[in-house]
């Protein structure tokens, strides 16, 4: 994994931590804010968070690594999420996922060599009455098929 933490300046990280620190239970809000800014949780942020919240670096790392959302390295420019949960399986999600992964030559969590697309599994997007469900960037796709996913990817510039 190539960490690109060099782009995250300690000053900016500190400012993000400060903005959320007043909350009760501020750690998850801080991590979300960092990930939204940098696309992952920069390694350099861990000691700064630990210091600000009076935790050990190991405790912060424990939280970051517990949650599926938090990444230790950036994803591709666009994330394609495919729902693997039961309601979507009932409407053909397994075959759809197999064909999408096969076409990109990826396994789950993989990123295309050009860094354009990362494919992630998701367990339910709440679109269970119109599955299979997918998400391209922020855009939800109900009754997803290869063509609709391709169109959304193209529209998002992937």
């Amino acid at each position: 994994m190539s960490h690109q933490a060099t782009t995250a300046e300690p000053g900016e990280i500190r400012a993000i931590i400060e903005a959320e620190r007043h909350r009760e239970g501020p750690l998850l809000p801080i991590l979300h804010a960092l990930q939204s800014r940098f696309g992952h949780i920069p390694e350099a942020a861990l000691p700064l968070i630990a210091d600000a919240l009076r935790l050990t670096k190991a405790e912060v790392h424990g939280v970051v690594s517990f949650y599926h959302d938090f990444r230790e390295a950036p994803a591709g420019r666009l994330t394609l999420k495919l729902c693997r949960a039961e309601a979507c399986q009932a409407t053909g999600a397994n075959a759809l996922a197999a064909s999408v992964l096969d076409r990109f030559g990826l396994d789950w969590h993989g990123t295309t060599p050009d860094g354009a697309v990362t494919v992630e599994p998701v367990y339910c997007l709440g679109l269970c009455a119109c599955g299979p469900a997918a998400m391209v960037g922020e855009r939800l796709i109900g009754r997803a098929d290869a063509a609709r996913i391709d169109a959304a990817l193209a529209e998002a510039g992937a």
Binding site: A85, E86, Y123, C124, G126, L127, A129
Partner: peptide, 12 residues
């Protein structure tokens, strides 16, 4: 945290 597949009442 409505994570159960097949449920979307909370979301709706």
């Amino acid at each position: 945290d409505e994570g159960d597949s097949g449920t979307f009442a909370d979301r709706m």
